[in-house]
Design a protein around this nucleic acid. Sequence first.
DNA 1: TCTGCTATCTTTACGCCGTAAAGAGTTCGA
DNA 2: TCGAACTCTTTACGGCGTAAAGATAGCAGA
Lengths: 266, 266
Amino acid sequence: MVVFAGQGDARRSMALLWRAEGTAGARTRRWPGPKPALSVAAIVDAGVAVADADGMAALSMRAVGERLGRTAMALYTYVPGKSELVDLMYDQVLAELPTDYDLTPGWRAAVTSWAEDTWEFYLRHPWVLQVSQARPVLGPNEYRALETLLRLLYATELSSAVLRRVVGALFHFIRGAAQTVTESRQAAASTGVSDEEWWQARSGMLTEMVPDFAERFPLLVRLETEGAAPDPGDSVPYLEREARSTFDIGLTVILDGIEAAIHQGR
Amino acid sequence: MVVFAGQGDARRSMALLWRAEGTAGARTRRWPGPKPALSVAAIVDAGVAVADADGMAALSMRAVGERLGRTAMALYTYVPGKSELVDLMYDQVLAELPTDYDLTPGWRAAVTSWAEDTWEFYLRHPWVLQVSQARPVLGPNEYRALETLLRLLYATELSSAVLRRVVGALFHFIRGAAQTVTESRQAAASTGVSDEEWWQARSGMLTEMVPDFAERFPLLVRLETEGAAPDPGDSVPYLEREARSTFDIGLTVILDGIEAAIHQGR
DNA sequence: TCTGCTATCTTTACGCCGTAAAGAGTTCGA
DNA sequence: TCGAACTCTTTACGGCGTAAAGATAGCAGA
């Protein structure tokens, strides 16, 4: 369920995204007709509430309308369609991301904090990971967030060409790692089967159906027996623990790679 | 449109995935009834054909049935449901991935080749990127592909704990970068608007609606003017060029990071 | 005050989706 | 020849986004 941004009426969409900024001021002449009971802001809020609570798959025009005590079609007075609503929701929640990172302890500490905040942001709004990145929404908060990261990264004194790709690599990595967590949670919620139960059942079936597993995949067995994340006894499920560990170690690897690029003067 | 793996009847699903391997031999006693005109293999092939041609969104039971000259419901005789069909499709195409990487020029060259092949694989079967990774399919070819990568990575002599996360980081990165390309292509195909046209229209609107853009986002402007990938005159669209460049440079960064980990003896 | 225009919101409808349920038709052993 | 087991079709249900049409409400000008 990847949702594409920037379909539909581009001009109207951009105007909505940047609304109250450039074109603020009086509502475009209204005159007869009943007073509007809804507003774009209310609809976007309702959309975010639905998506946060039940996921992107549950975000339907009917569901959003219902939450506002209206029918689905009532929303079309305010918003051109579902695609534009998702764009607005996306840019709205991006406003939560901090911008005030301190660079005095060095870029590495700052980028680490940024990555941690971004990670938590994705876990808070898992549906954001389903908004396609290919043709970005181009809303004010997306730009604000990017500008924030760029401020930290330009402190590395890397070239713009390299930086541009480093930004992409960081986002791909963090989004992917976060996605593992959110999808695991979603799977647990929608099937009622926890990670542990699922894995137990599957690996049991595997050893039964594929008796020569260890001979066919010796390195996988080695990885599984040697490398598992320790269970700290707390309630974090298996796959989430793994994903978090991947996030930590993967980030270290990428930051090490950035340092290597710096030392090579790229 | 993320599709979840491993829902539904787990036992039947696993049996189908590992079919013809352990439990090969005679079809489970059949006796009366018309001879089956279809087969699991034919259905999986048809599914792959539909998904390759028109994307995951176009993969419906009706579409697969139609391609085989049957109704949607006919498929349910062979396959428990759509989710299991996707699992089978996924494991089937994974068989295309090579396994015979040469380690004599060193792990770095081998992993680079592996990454390149994997990248091309994703571009060949974009729908694979929509199969959820959280609860893996656990089919033979997924294991085979993982075992292949592990063979290359164990040559680094890193610990299993680190390796495990490096694998995750590599996959997140490659999948993310490939996703940008496939989504960009999909957007172009479904809207009829090329990357260039889209960007032209959007950036034009931006400068019009947000006249103080350069003051608000100076680093973004700098990145855009300094760091763009040169247009080699060939027909590769803008966003694809960027994504490919992100893949190349990002991979270098990650591999540099792995080398740093090696030198630190992790 | 009444009329008429316009904006908001509802109702209905269309063609998609996955799949449950029921039934038609086919092929074999007994 | 009969009946069981199997394949495959038909029909139906509740979901989706949204087009089209109609009901209702509120204000400007008469």
